[in-house]
């Protein structure tokens, strides 16, 4: 089982993710350079957080045109597991592998804080180790995380059970208070219809060791490992 982490100019959670996969879970993990055309036979591709291309134009808008992304798209079309975290999620939206777009946070502030998210779907490769309704405490760090899609788009997400995580209060209550960035339907993470590409704004790699204040993020990585095993 091999994990690949894509590095764009401006990625800054690449090594955090590498550290969790290699040193916490002892997985074979390699970096994938955005200019290459080689995904190195990995079983799961992670697009890490950061500010690819300085967020020029729109978050994730330029990274989408990196040479490697063609391979990532083909890998995803064939059913390969792809996880986009924060900026990685924004790249997946711009790439069209996931529906919708990101707007600036409702309060126009860069939000860097621990939040609570509720698992809405357990039957995914990314959450099978969790429980539906389980609340995770995981940090966010973003300016543009205010998820938006048209009314029809949101209805489709709900109908197909594609909303995987919602922002909530600590007890799992979905409310305006818990929905820190103003996302439609409190969306914190969604999956594609085929169920192999997921994007999430919170950073599980920053919550996978007790010394960092939360280990809740491990559920996501452990789920992927179980799924691939």
């Amino acid at each position: 089982m091999k994990f690949g982490i894509v590095i764009f100019p401006g990625s800054n959670c690449d090594y955090d993710t590498f550290n969790v996969l290699r040193d916490v879970f002892h997985m074979e993990t390699v970096f994938l350079w955005h200019k290459d055309h080689n995904i190195k036979d990995v079983d799961c591709i992670i697009l890490p957080g950061g500010f690819s291309y300085g967020d020029y134009l729109r978050s994730g808008a330029i990274a989408r045109f990196s040479p490697l992304m063609q391979e990532v798209k083909e890998f995803a079309m064939k059913g390969g597991l792809v996880l986009g975290i924060c900026n990685g999620f924004q790249v997946l939206l711009e790439l069209g592998l996931l529906p919708g777009a990101m707007l600036r946070n409702k309060n126009l502030k860069f939000l860097c804080q621990h939040v609570h998210i509720r698992i809405e779907e357990k039957k995914t490769p990314f959450t099978k180790r969790g429980e539906k309704g389980q609340v995770l405490r995981i940090p966010i760090a973003h300016f543009d995380g205010n998820y938006y899609d048209s009314e029809e788009g949101i209805e489709t997400l709900i109908e197909n059970n594609q909303i995987v995580f919602r922002y909530s209060e600590h007890n799992g209550l979905i409310s305006d208070k818990g929905n820190v960035n103003g996302s439609k339907e409190s969306v914190a993470g969604i999956i594609n219809k085929a169920g192999n590409v997921m994007g999430m704004m919170p950073h599980p790699e920053r919550a996978s060791e007790a010394i960092l204040g939360s280990e809740d993020g491990k559920i996501i990585f452990q789920s992927i490992i179980d799924w691939l095993a």
């Binding site: 134009l57 808008a61 048209s150």
Partner: peptide, 8 residues
């Protein structure tokens, strides 16, 4: 394709 994101 590039300058605008037609979703928003």
């Amino acid at each position: 394709k590039v300058l605008a994101n037609p979703i928003i």
